[in-house]
Simulated scan of single mutants.
Amino acid sequence: MVKIRNSLALIFALLLAVPAGAQPLAKQEFGAKRVASAQKSAPFGSYSQGCIAGAEQLAETGPTWQAMRLSRNRNWGHPQAVDFVKDLSKVAAKQPGWKGLYIGDISQPRGGPMLSGHRSHQLGLDIDIWMLPASRLNLSRNTRENISSISLRRAKGAFVNDNWSRAHHRIIKAAAKDKRTARIFVFPGAKVQMCKDAKGDRRWLRKIRPWYGHHYHFHVRLACPRGARGCVNQDPPPRGDGCADAQKWVDDILNPPAPRPRDPNAPAPKPRRELRVADLPQQCAGVLAAR
């Protein structure tokens, strides 16, 4: 164990010794890995700046799910995420017209920054779930590359459209009520609609947060697994059911407030720097180097 720790410290020290501009981009290093590391499953860092050791691959097809866009090789996650997909897809399979779920991106084999598409999904704890009802679970690999999900938004996300159904409400509610879930991101109109339709106990609505996009899929973010010391949890959502905040977002879509005047003396914002391996938790260098 001491030798392993010393080796990781040496790898990290060597990375730090290389000038930042000469260090390889983390997305290139992690994007090149085709399989998970042969380590005990553990997430390190935060959802948008981390990695995962010992990820588990979600089967391409299961009794109640299919993984989509297989060429991306992003159907890897913490075992807790894989179990979550299996459990939620069983709920979906009970809905009229649904045989289960179509699963989008989870994570790369070792997590980390992706070559395209996401800032998060780095710990194997973020799951994109398509809004398209999974009416068939025998789609070919080629079909899964070319089929698209459906949009549920209307009026730039202020309202749901005719594709929205009670099944969407029930599935997202089940995901929110799961104790493993930290947040769920959907477009504002969906949150408002769910607030209008919710009956009885409304505490689960707190986890559902409006966010840009998220009308072709909803995004489930799981909390750090118990005992995962290197994992940084998402801050808890604000108190209450969040319905007033979602309605305010919708109101601003329909009647945009006047833009704030720009301070001519304010410095121009700096472009976001691409993450290097040395920017990630020290354990991530070991995840990359592991077999």
Score class of each variant (00 low, 15 high):
L10S: 15
A244H: 07
L205F: 13
R136V: 07
T61Q: 04
V287T: 03
P281A: 06
F187T: 03
I208A: 06
P256A: 08
D126F: 10
T61C: 05
S151D: 12
P210T: 06
P259Y: 06
P113W: 01
Y212P: 02
A290N: 10
C231S: 06
D263A: 03
A182N: 11
A174S: 15
D252S: 14
A228T: 01
P257N: 09
Q49T: 04
V35S: 07
I127K: 06
A244S: 15
G213L: 02
C231W: 11
L101C: 12
P257D: 10
L280V: 11
G100F: 02
S46M: 06
P264K: 01
G100R: 07
G242S: 11
P269S: 00
A278W: 02
V35F: 10
A13T: 10
A223T: 12
R239L: 09
K3R: 14
A158C: 14
R5P: 00
S46V: 08
A258W: 05
Q80T: 08
S46Y: 06
P43M: 05
E145N: 07
N142P: 00
K270D: 14
K207L: 06
A285E: 04
A134Q: 13
P259W: 07
K156S: 14
R119Y: 01
V82F: 08
G230L: 03
G200K: 07
H215L: 04
P264L: 00
P238I: 11
